[in-house]
């Protein structure tokens, strides 16, 4: 039997339908293959599993910091001395590049504990100042030696190329002396 090769009145014949159906199926199939190829590059399950860290902050003396590790990146935990809190509050926050007050960067009831990533927001170097004797920069907080960003006692950017304050990660006090980050 001969196939019907005449074009029907609406201008769409069987061949058009087969063409569109075949190309669409191949397109969807192609996308279905591309998705895993792209997704495999995202963080794997074991990397994501390390995404919370628990820390005891009771041993930190006022004015002292510790360096911990969170998601394989340095984390600074600092117990601010009264003069450091005063210095941070003496600045008009709205005049800053990334306007934030110290209170907005700490947890209520724990206003002396400053938890920030130890990752410069410019290009990701580790700022100095968390270890005794290191250069704390012009604002007595942290100083990034790579491209000269100066952070104040509240970890806010005050001078240099970094666009934002040192990031405060998600964390909570699980007891009076313990925090869980992530």
């Amino acid at each position: 039997m001969m196939a019907d090769t005449t074009v029907p009145a609406d201008g769409v014949d069987r061949r058009d339908f087969i063409n569109i159906a075949a190309v669409s199926a191949a397109g969807v199939g192609g996308l279905a293959v591309v998705f895993p190829l792209i997704s495999q590059m995202a963080p794997s399950a074991d990397v994501l599993a390390e995404s919370t860290t628990e820390l005891d902050v009771s041993a930190i003396e006022p004015g002292q910091s510790i360096k911990a590790v969170f998601r394989k990146q340095p984390l600074f935990v600092k117990r601010l001395a009264p003069q450091e809190i005063a210095a941070a509050n003496a600045v008009d926050a709205s005049s800053l590049r990334d306007p934030q007050t110290l209170a907005e960067r700490t947890k209520e009831g724990h206003g002396d504990i400053l938890v920030t990533m130890g990752v410069c927001t410019h290009l990701g170097c580790v700022p100095l100042g968390a270890v005794e004797g290191e250069n704390k920069g012009e604002f007595d907080g942290y100083f990034c030696p790579c491209h000269g960003s100066h952070y104040d006692t509240a970890g806010r950017i005050r001078k240099g190329p970094a666009p934002t304050n040192l990031e405060v990660p998600d964390y909570e006090f699980t007891s009076d002396t313990t925090i869980t980050v992530g």
């Binding site: 792209i38 590059m41 995202a42």
Partner: peptide, 25 residues
């Protein structure tokens, strides 16, 4: 530093950077 450059791109920068290095650092 170089993968951090991608983090400068607005909106998609940070997820793109995490995707490129397959982790947070």
């Amino acid at each position: 530093v170089i993968t951090g450059l991608f983090g400068a791109i607005p909106l998609v920068g940070e997820p793109l950077q995490i995707w490129l290095v397959g982790g947070f650092a």
